[in-house]
Structures are given as structure tokens and as C-alpha cells.
Design a protein around this nucleic acid. Structure first.
Length: 469
DNA sequence: CACGGGTTCGG
DNA sequence: CGAACCCGT
């Protein structure tokens, strides 16, 4: 009997998991599985405590789900990313593994790790089967007419949709049940000091995630196109956290929306929601092809000349929700407490940091990662650079969000603002979105006027550096 | 078939 | 503004 290893990395699920499914398809094989948590590295990369906790909880449930189909999950933890290589290597030798299955990851460290392990295991004649589990299309599948990866979302989207129209989307089923096994999982918490009571967490596990997805697609998705007009969380699918750690697959999401209809028959809300999945796919493809523009240099090269401020005190006012702009403060306080705010609010806060306070977008990017339950490097970095007008597909630098206008639009009655900023409880609704009125309120802390910039000043700061090379 | 000009569109 | 397309030469 041959021995096969499934190495789980960013997919804590038994549904639509190509590596798991195909490993179980092998004839006369005994399937082993491994998950490795590089905890130190997570911390170094600013992964939030809540996301670590979320992984841990879901991992425990995943382990139970695997037991039900007769597979044991071997858990390891390590410090660095590269330590994973050793663990896999010795596991393979010890258990006499002949073949490894895993789903590919597309970020820089992950690619390096996988290249190394391929090299090392080749010497030992261990086969590696790498599959696509966390993207709907592989990077390279969606290219322009000149066979170049897109740099503009608009064209990527068009191409993506035409592919979806042509291809039937289907998911990998759960592998056939073998005899159920029992063992205790022995997975210690990643953070000892994490106080889960501070957050009202969502439920955990794959079953919950799928239930949530199906429920959303059945009832709420119809109204999704209105989601950016309100701060009501009920409008959102609330599955981003599951998606970010692979408890649910993007293909499953797309499948649930399109399984009964053709693309052209989809409602406005359904199309809008699919677009969010396309954005995710866009940034992940782009990161794969142009990692440099995420981590090293700005795609819009002249923006390298900009000397953003790095003022800690002002930055702290922003993270603590004490800027004096209610919609920003409410959002930042919620983010800190819950680890989640909706996309529109993230944009407003990010824009405020970069284009009202003129602080380096990278500081904001790091902070978001350190708080978000659904943090994802590609999406977080991509969106921050969109706001900062520095990256691929970034917004024109002269386009600047007006937080007061946004606030009026999405929280007209001030319900959200008042919930998070008790200092403003006594203020009447119409004044909540009035910059000049808010300046006069005494017990509501704010950033001094001299540290804020007007739209014209910011445009000027950008334009000063706009030297074409 | 490579090029370039005109057009379209943008979280 | 500028990427990517279309369409003409």
C-alpha cells in the first residue's frame, strides 16, 4: 500500500479541495495529512490576533471533519516560513510518503518555499502534485489580447466574465467516506493572551460557512448592490473571514450564485457580489505577476518621490478613532474592537489617512492587517495602493474621498456614528456630517487643523512630485 | 502582421 | 491620465 500526504496550507475545508479530493482518488493508498502553523512569521507579518484565533478554531473543526472521512491531521507549529520545509521533509521520510498533494499559493514567500521543497523532494523521488484550490482561474489564464496580464481591473473583469460565460463552474466534491477514526487533535492556541470576549465573533467551521453562503445567496444577495450605500452589516455576506483562510473556496462562492442561471440572467446584486470575487482574483493574479509593485516599488513610478509623513501621534489618533471626523472615528473604533468593518468604511478611513492627514499608506496597510479578521496581503495592499494612487489600477491622485459627504450618504441618521462615539450622543443628526459644526464641540477629541490638509493642498503635494521619468 | 491613431472607460 | 481595445493601413 502506498502512502500519500495531503499538505493543507490555506484551505481548511473538505468541500472543493482539489488536493484532498484527488489524493483520496488514488487507488490502494493510505492518506496522511499535515498542517503547519508558522506562528512567529505570522506575527512578524502583522497577522491579527483575531485572525490567528479564527484559524485555530477552524483548524480544530477541520481536524474533526477529516476524522469523519478517515483521515488524521498531523499538526505542527514552527517559527519561520522555511521551517515548514524541514517538517515536511522529515515527515515524508519517517512515514515513507511517496507522493504529496497540495493546493498552490501565489504570494512571494509561499512560491519560494514550494520551489525549495520541490527541489529537495525530487532527490528523494517523492512526487509532488500541486493544484489550484484557492483561485477560480490560474494566473496566466486571464490575459490581454497581447498575452500580457492585465493591469486594469475593468479589462480583467470583462475577460473574467467572458470566461465564466464559456465555462461551467463546478466544484470538487467531498471525498468518499472511509472508516471514521478518533483521536484528540492536540492543537494548542496560537496566542495565549487572546481574550476572545472582547470580540463578538462569528461562528466557526466549514458547515457554518457554507450555511452562511447559501443563506446569503438565497435572501440577501438581491440587495447587495445597495450595500455600499449603508453601514448596515446585514447587507454583507460576512464570509470574507472564511474566504481569507480557506474555510470556503472562491469557486464555491461563484458556483452558489451561478449554478441555476446563466450569467446574463443574474440580478444586479448577484453581479455586484461576483465582482467582489473578481476583485479578489484580480489582486491575487496581479501580485503573482508583479510582486515588486506590491512590496518594493510603486507602479506609478513618480509617486516614489512623495515624502509622506510618518507622525506617530497623528497616526495614533487615527488608529484610536480620535481624528474628529465622525465616520472615520466610528469605523476605526469598530475595527479595533471587532476586527471587521465593511469595504466602504475601509476605503473612507484609508483615504482619510492618506489624503487628509498625508501619512504613509504603508503604516495604514500594516495597521489594517494587524486588526482585520479577514486580512489578506494581496487585497489589503492592493486596496491601500488604490486609495494612495500609487499602485496598479490605482485611482487618479486628484480623486479624493470627501468623508463628510460619504458619511451623510451611508449613515444619514447617524445611528452607526452614535453607536461608536458616545461623545456625540447629544448632537442632533443634521450636524453629525457638518465639518464646521463638529470643530466647535469641546469634549470630542480631534486632530489639530494645522495637521490636516485640504483637497487642494494634497493635490499640490502630489503634483509637486510629478516629475516624469 | 506590426504599427499607430482613435475611442472607451474608470471602485 | 493611460491601459487596452478596435480598426485601418
Amino acid at each position: 500500500m502506498k502512502k500519500i500526504l495531503v499538505w493543507f496550507r490555506n484551505e481548511l475545508r473538505i468541500h472543493d479541495n482539489p488536493a484532498l479530493f484527488l489524493a483520496c482518488q488514488e487507488k490502494n493508498a493510505q492518506v496522511e495529512s499535515v498542517y503547519i502553523a508558522p506562528i512567529e512569521q505570522w506575527k512578524e507579518h502583522n497577522m491579527s490576533k483575531i485572525q490567528c484565533f479564527f484559524i485555530w478554531k477552524n483548524l480544530k473543526i477541520f481536524s474533526k471533519n477529516l476524522q469523519k472521512i478517515g483521515i488524521k491531521l498531523n499538526y505542527f507549529s514552527c517559527k519561520k516560513y522555511r521551517d515548514q520545509i524541514k517538517i515536511i521533509y522529515y515527515f515524508c521520510l519517517k512515514k515513507k510518503i511517496g507522493k504529496i498533494f497540495y493546493n498552490k499559493e501565489y504570494s512571494v514567500n509561499e512560491i519560494k518555499r514550494d520551489q525549495k521543497i520541490k527541489k529537495i523532494l525530487k532527490r528523494k523521488k517523492i512526487k509532488i502534485i500541486d493544484l489550484r484550490g484557492n483561485l477560480i482561474f490560474s494566473p496566466g489564464k486571464i490575459l490581454s489580447k497581447k498575452n500580457i496580464p492585465y493591469k486594469k481591473y475593468y479589462f480583467f473583469k470583462k475577460s473574467f466574465i467572458s470566461l465564466v460565460k464559456k465555462k461551467k463552474i463546478s466544484c470538487f466534491p467531498v471525498p468518499k467516506m472511509k472508516k471514521e477514526i478518533f483521536f484528540s487533535d492536540c492543537i494548542p492556541p496560537f496566542y495565549k493572551s487572546f481574550q476572545k470576549n472582547r470580540y463578538k465573533l462569528q461562528n466557526f467551521g466549514e458547515k457554518e460557512a457554507i450555511k452562511k453562503l447559501k443563506n446569503f445567496c438565497r435572501y440577501k444577495i438581491k440587495h447587495y448592490h445597495k450595500a455600499n450605500k449603508t453601514v448596515n452589516d446585514e447587507r454583507n455576506s460576512q464570509i470574507s473571514a472564511f474566504l481569507s483562510i480557506g474555510v470556503i473556496s472562491p469557486r464555491k462562492c461563484l458556483y452558489e450564485v451561478t449554478k441555476r442561471k446563466k450569467y446574463s440572467q443574474l440580478s444586479e446584486g448577484e453581479k455586484k457580489w461576483i465582482e467582489e470575487i473578481i476583485w479578489r482574483e484580480f489582486y491575487k493574479h496581479t501580485l503573482f505577476f508583479y510582486p515588486k509593485f506590491f512590496f518594493v516599488k510603486h507602479y506609478i513610478s513618480w509617486t516614489e518621490n512623495i515624502r509622506w509623513r510618518k507622525n506617530r501621534k497623528i497616526f495614533k489618533s487615527w488608529t484610536n478613532g480620535k481624528t474628529g471626523c465622525p465616520i472615520v472615528d466610528a469605523s476605526m473604533r469598530m475595527l479595533k474592537k471587532k476586527g471587521w468593518i465593511n469595504n466602504r468604511l475601509r476605503m473612507i478611513c484609508a483615504s482619510f489617512l492618506v489624503k487628509n492627514l498625508f501619512i504613509d499608506w504603508r503604516m495604514g496597510e500594516k495597521y489594517f492587517m494587524s486588526k482585520l479578521i479577514d486580512g489578506d496581503v494581496a487585497l489589503n495592499n492592493g486596496n491601500w495602493q488604490w486609495i494612495a494612487s500609487t499602485g496598479i489600477n490605482s485611482s487618479p491622485y486628484y480623486r479624493i474621498f470627501n468623508p463628510y459627504y460619504q458619511s451623510k450618504k451611508i449613515d444619514k441618521k447617524g445611528k452607526f456614528i452614535k453607536k461608536w462615539i458616545p461623545e456625540l450622543n447629544q448632537i442632533s443628526t443634521e450636524h453629525l456630517h457638518e465639518e464646521n459644526f463638529l470643530k466647535k464641540i469641546k469634549n470630542y477629541s480631534k486632530i489639530p487643523e494645522k495637521d490636516k490638509y485640504s483637497k487642494e493642498e494634497i493635490i499640490d503635494l502630489y503634483e509637486k512630485n510629478k516629475i516624469k521619468i
